[in-house]
Design a protein around this nucleic acid. Structure first.
Lengths: 144, 144
DNA sequence: GCAAGATCATTGCAGTTGCAACGATTATGC
DNA sequence: GCATAATCGTTGCAACTGCAATGATCTTGC
């Protein structure tokens, strides 16, 4: 028998994730002109409060350099403030500006609505997906 | 309440898919030095037989240009043969060479083993995931 | 039969990514 | 206390991506 790519789980997972991300990315691109890394940094800051680049890099599955450049762009747009950490001067303190917070309020609502639609689309198996994603997330820290 | 990125489905899906893809990509990178697009083209050709770039582009969720360049590299490596279609000379006929077939035999076994491991990791919810991915795949053809 | 439009693969190009330096700062071993 | 190693954020660089031409070929309307 020949190999069937369209029955291969990693491939199907990747395609599905890309499609969902693409659909949602179109929303915040239209709303605020954000790229995916910018959205992730902003969204993480909304919940985490003041935090370093290293922190975001570790939690949000983006390379240090990507976080660094996204943060710079967000700073340029007035959505994020960068300051120095006095206790450890290697670190940078990132936090949302009032404009950043206001934007995340709007984007958060859009995200919730999108997720609700998605869950409706997924139907009764959504709970199983939730469990699966938690299990996968726990597996690989990528720290190797 | 602030927005919680790590409870947001599109984000979690994207991270999980990236991690799974990364793990598997390391395997075929080690085995044959393939990139993700090259793997996809090769794997699709294994099951589809002779087919055009346009066909792969439509089925495998890769841009035309990405498929074109991946096919050229695979041709250079002697894994794929490119020939002209006599009925429609705009089209290119891609097919695996014997070396390509031999490689896919090995990679197919590696892929099956990887998927088996993954399914074991996922446990009893794997069936639900299968249904979900089919549903998502059916939704968006991206033809808009 | 032929002109206008559609389709196909390729290529150019700007933007992004991932990785490996790099300078600056802090932690560790002795 | 001080040299060595580790960590942090940034930047350079090559590779890749996605999009928009481009040239070649086919299809459609008439």
């Amino acid at each position: 028998m020949t190999f069937r790519l369209d029955a291969f789980l990693p491939y199907r997972l990747s395609v599905a994730a890309a499609q969902v991300s693409r659909r949602f990315a179109a929303l915040y691109e239209a709303e605020a002109g954000l790229t995916i890394p910018e959205w992730r940094v902003l969204a993480h800051l909304d919940h985490s409060g003041a935090v370093s680049i290293r922190d975001i890099h570790a939690r949000v599955n983006l390379d240090k350099s990507v976080v660094s450049r996204a943060a710079s762009r967000l700073q340029g747009a007035g959505l994020v403030r960068k300051s120095g950490n006095d206790a450890d001067r290697r670190l940078i303190v990132l936090e949302l500006t009032p404009q950043g917070q206001a934007l995340m309020l709007r984007l958060g609502r859009i995200a919730e609505a999108f997720q609700a639609d998605l869950l409706a689309e997924l139907g009764p198996d959504a709970a199983a997906l939730d469990r699966l994603l938690s299990r996968l997330a726990g597996k690989e820290t990528g720290a190797a």
